[in-house]
């Protein structure tokens, strides 16, 4: 298998891989940004006093967590056009990734917030801080610090999940491997190169995760 490994073909396809690598980064970054936003909102709803908002967020989070991303992706891909909503594939893909990871981020942030001692929130109320001030100055800074590691873990999952977008024919890393397979019939070269590019992202995020944990412990010592 390996003696027949054709580096020339990989070199020939390098520009394509470069483009697809950037596409994966870009799609993931966009979804990550959206997912954290959705996560914060869903979490605020889940923890709110209003029973309706809390229930609605609960239904959203539970139904996302109990179904596979691929089924959600197809749900939007095949479902939105029947409602008359025509979106480009990449928008559908980013939408599905955002809503999927958003539910997980909501849970991660919730665990961070609930780890904060309730006395701090009471102290905030007693000092006359508004809801948003308490969120901004007391709860979120601590919750984000405590949850940075699981959040980066979910970011890694998100990058990997973005490979499913190739199944609705969006050009990204996995799609490049599929192209190399179908055009040259070289699955070994195609998919191993794809895997190598994903590993680069993985190791970078992992290193960042380890680094940030050390930083946080460092800060806590003060």
């Amino acid at each position: 298998m390996l003696e027949a490994f054709n580096f020339r073909v990989i070199l020939e396809y390098m520009p394509l891989y470069g483009k697809c690598f950037l596409a994966t980064l870009w799609l993931s970054a966009l979804s990550l940004f959206g997912a954290i936003l959705v996560g914060i909102i869903a979490c605020a709803m889940r923890l709110s006093q209003s029973r309706f908002l809390s229930r609605a967020a609960g239904v959203y989070i539970e139904s996302i967590r109990s179904t596979p991303l691929l089924a959600q992706l197809y749900f939007f891909y095949f479902g939105l056009p029947t409602l008359g909503i025509m979106l480009p594939e990449w928008v559908t893909g980013v939408l599905a990734l955002t809503l999927n990871s958003g539910a997980y981020y909501a849970e991660i942030i919730r665990s961070g917030i609930q780890a904060i001692h309730f006395g701090q929130i009471e102290a905030g109320i007693a000092s006359g801080l508004s809801y948003f001030q308490r969120m901004r100055h007391i709860i979120l800074p601590q919750a984000l610090g405590m949850t940075i590691r699981p959040m980066l873990g979910q970011a890694i999952v998100l990058v990997k999940d973005s490979s499913l977008l190739s199944l609705i024919s969006i050009m990204e890393l996995t799609r490049a491997g599929q192209l190399l397979t179908s055009e040259r019939f070289m699955p070994t070269e195609g998919f191993l190169t794809t895997a190598a590019f994903y590993l680069i992202i993985y190791y970078m995020l992992k290193a960042f995760s380890n680094w940030s944990e050390k930083r946080l412990i460092f800060q806590e010592a003060y």
């Binding site: 890694i156 490979s163 499913l164 699955p187 998919f191 191993l192 994903y198």
Partner: peptide, 23 residues
């Protein structure tokens, strides 16, 4: 563990399904 965690499952499925036959 790192290699399995660092690559998407879809890519692993393709590698096993398409590459093992060539071996």
């Amino acid at each position: 563990v790192d290699v399995i965690r660092g690559t998407p499952f879809l890519v692993q499925v393709f590698i096993i399904f398409f590459i093992l036959p060539s071996a």
